[in-house]
Design a protein around this nucleic acid. Structure first.
Lengths: 144, 144
DNA sequence: GGCACCCTCACGTGGCGTCAGCGTAC
DNA sequence: CGTACGCTGACGCCACGTGAGGGTGC
């Protein structure tokens, strides 16, 4: 991957080197994630600077860390103004940990409830007291 | 909530008794979740049988248990054919437990990674060896 | 001239929310 | 006659995927 000093890449080449689908790259450009690294040829082709690959790698990495494209966009805008976006990144990641923890707790609670429900189900196949229920085993407690 | 034998409810009343927004009820009808419990007045108003409330309660409950509206639709179709959908429900819930577990594991792994990242961050503020990185602290290992 | 590549536009996903611009009930 | 309620579109969210129907590079 050693490109010349002023080499510009077409979208297919960017796709190959970055491992992202062409459609995804076009989408990223459309929502303004790649702005300062893209121009157009006289025939309308996107021409990318090689540093777009670092940008795409950053986007990919940030996504696997749970950041949304909007959050990533904010970070990239900080970067494009010449600042180090690390502070912003750090804040976002700390928030992510909080929301992740909340979701994990909620999902664990849900799983417990489902497991309890299925256990009861084995022991009491169909409580008849709920005539109106679609499936009696599933009705919420405050209606029983 | 004691309705007469042939009372039909307008959508606002259904919303009030079910606790669901009007828009949501319309959407559920649009995708065919409420079919056998709705008709139209000569002026186009939706008129609901009171048993739509049991149906909505079932949908709500199933949703909080993690089922998608498509899965719920399948279950309701079984019910509408005169069968008890409990077997279908049970299968869906067992699958949900599996996918829930997978997601929980993945989210915990992600959280650990984020926490490790932020710990390293404190100790080694900015590794300079990655000149091309947008934020050096965040780059994936296989590029370092 | 053929083929791989590139383009834009439009519509799909899920589960609704949010208008806009009407008609209806009382 | 007002106003609260009802109706049908159309568009927004998010992160793209899919396909149509074309133009371009070699």
């Amino acid at each position: 991957m050693n490109f010349g000093p002023v080499a510009l890449l077409k979208i297919g080449e960017v796709a190959k080197h970055s491992g992202l689908p062409v459609k995804t790259i076009r989408y990223y450009e459309e929502i303004g994630l790649l702005a300062p690294t893209v121009e157009r040829s006289h025939t309308g082709y996107r021409l990318f600077q090689t540093r777009v690959l670092d940008r795409l790698a950053f986007i990919k990495r940030s996504q696997t860390l749970g950041l949304s494209l909007n959050e990533i966009k904010t970070i990239l805008q900080v970067h494009d103004q010449g600042e180090l976006p690390c502070h912003t990144v750090k804040q976002q990641l700390q928030e992510k940990i909080s929301t992740l923890t909340e979701r994990i707790v909620a999902m664990e609670a849900l799983r417990s409830e489902l497991q309890a429900l299925l256990s009861d189900w084995e022991e009491h196949p169909a409580p008849q007291r709920l005539q109106h229920a679609i499936c009696p085993n599933i009705q919420s407690r405050d209606r029983g």
